[in-house]
């Protein structure tokens, strides 16, 4: 088996007295789409936030490319290729579409103060703009290049959010509920895009509610319940696991 790109080891996180994640361990294999699912309140989002550096773990650790990254700030993680997206449409709404993606190129377009002042950053900026334009083409957004992001239809905004994340050159891309609030057509398009991203050699880890999308898309699935690992496996293995069925039915019961 290949070396995992991301490893979560005995991870726990509590808020006050509440244990949101309890002794969770799993690993993500490079080049796969890895899903984390579970009923409401299973601790998926907390797990996601700990991995992406928003919270520090209470105990345990997260390893990325063999390096312990627990508690490291989001922007540092981004510099080493671990990029997260946000639920819904989080964009620089006031920027044009191209400027959104150009800002995504932040790390690769680094330049000193004086060179920016004197315009010596022209070359690296041209590279960034080219990269942004290529990404817009990839997401079929080229026609909307100079449109203000807030004017885009919802589906395009979600795609733009992915484009911003890709601009940051991820080695692993963490998607936070990428299918929430999408109609079936948008979901199908987003699934294709996610596969295309994986085929570019970028590992994808996602947290999601939409079971159907997850089953159809992911190579590996980690199922959480009550903050702990319930089971792990391929979609086929997970689908037939009695514990998973019970957890989902049980939560549906509680909800009604």
């Amino acid at each position: 088996m290949t070396q995992p790109i991301l490893e979560v080891c005995d991870l726990s996180r509590n808020f006050g007295g509440l244990l949101a994640v309890n002794q969770l361990s799993f690993s993500v294999i490079p080049g796969t789409i890895h899903g984390i699912i579970g009923p409401n309140g299973a601790g998926k989002t907390t797990t996601f936030n700990v991995i992406s550096g928003f919270y520090a773990p209470s105990s345990g650790h997260v390893t990325y490319l063999g390096k312990d990254i627990s508690g490291i700030r989001t922007d540092r993680l981004a510099e080493i290729g671990l990029i997260r997206t946000f639920q819904g449409t989080t964009l620089f709404n006031e920027f044009s579409v191209i400027d959104n993606v150009r800002l995504g190129c932040h790390v690769s377009a680094k330049s000193g103060f004086l060179s920016r002042l004197l315009g010596a950053d022209r070359e690296s900026e041209a590279v960034a703009t080219k990269k942004a334009e290529d990404l817009l083409a990839f997401f079929n957004l080229s026609d909307l290049r100079d449109e203000e992001a807030s004017n885009l239809p919802h589906g395009h905004q979600r795609a733009l959010g992915m484009a911003v994340a890709l601009a940051a050159d991820p080695k692993i891309l963490l998607l936070d509920e990428p299918f929430t609030g999408m109609n079936p057509e948008e979901t199908a398009r987003m699934m294709t895009l996610t596969r295309d991203i994986r085929d570019r050699g970028i590992t994808v880890m996602l947290v999601e509610h939409d079971m159907q999308a997850v089953m159809g898309l992911c190579d590996m699935i980690t199922v959480m319940n009550f903050g702990s690992l319930l089971t792990e496996g391929t979609p086929k293995e997970v689908r037939t696991n009695p514990g998973v069925i019970e957890a989902y039915l049980g939560s549906a019961h509680h909800a009604s």
């Binding site: 922007d75 981004a78 997206t85 946000f86 800002l103 932040h106 911003v164």
Partner: peptide, 9 residues
Amino acid sequence: KLAESVGVN
């Protein structure tokens, strides 16, 4: 937050 996620300190 979005700026942070693409590496802006």
